[in-house]
């Protein structure tokens, strides 16, 4: 039998499709109160357009596990940081060619981002913003591959 927690935790992030919302660190709580399941999530960025899809996916997943009364709540505090991405999540990002963020919050100095393909530290930032709100665009000087990097936040 799948618990509500397991069902919600298995939902895949629609914009980082190699991660579950639990690995991304945006699943904050799953509460069961009688028949009612309340799932609490938090956005990565305030304007994250994926939140509606995530809410719908969580609803569907928990219902499919046999719980018909599901509420999804959104909280903003404490604010999500990239430090909440689990180690398993970081490994999955790197394996998918997306450079994971540094630990320890935003740093204004430029730290080297390793190429997720060849591992070279000889990389450069092409754009401080990328395909989604949480990513920046980088390129590896060694193997010449462009890649996404999840910005430290």
């Amino acid at each position: 039998m799948v618990t509500p927690r397991q069902a919600a935790a298995a939902v895949v992030d629609p914009e980082l499709r190699v991660l579950t919302i639990e690995e991304l660190g945006i699943l904050r709580d799953v509460r069961v109160d009688g028949e009612r399941v309340t799932v609490t999530i938090t956005p990565t960025y305030t304007g994250c357009p994926a939140m509606d899809v995530i809410r719908a996916d969580v609803q569907q997943a928990v219902r499919a596990a046999g719980y018909s009364d599901v509420a999804v709540e959104t909280v903003f505090a404490p604010a999500w940081t990239t430090d909440w991405i689990s180690d398993a999540g970081r490994a999955k990002l790197a394996a998918a060619g997306i450079a994971p963020p540094h630990r320890a919050g935003p740093v204004r100095l430029s730290l080297t981002v390793r190429c997720p393909r060849c591992g070279s530290p000889d990389t450069e930032q092409l754009s401080r913003f990328g395909s989604t709100a949480c990513k920046a665009l980088w390129r590896c000087r060694a193997c010449a591959e462009p890649f996404d990097h999840v910005k430290a936040l």
Binding site: P43, Y45, T46, V75, F76, A77, P78, A79, W80, P106
Partner: peptide, 10 residues
């Protein structure tokens, strides 16, 4: 406060 704490990082 929660909204502001989120938005300030952005």
């Amino acid at each position: 406060a929660a909204i502001a704490a989120k938005a300030r990082k952005e």
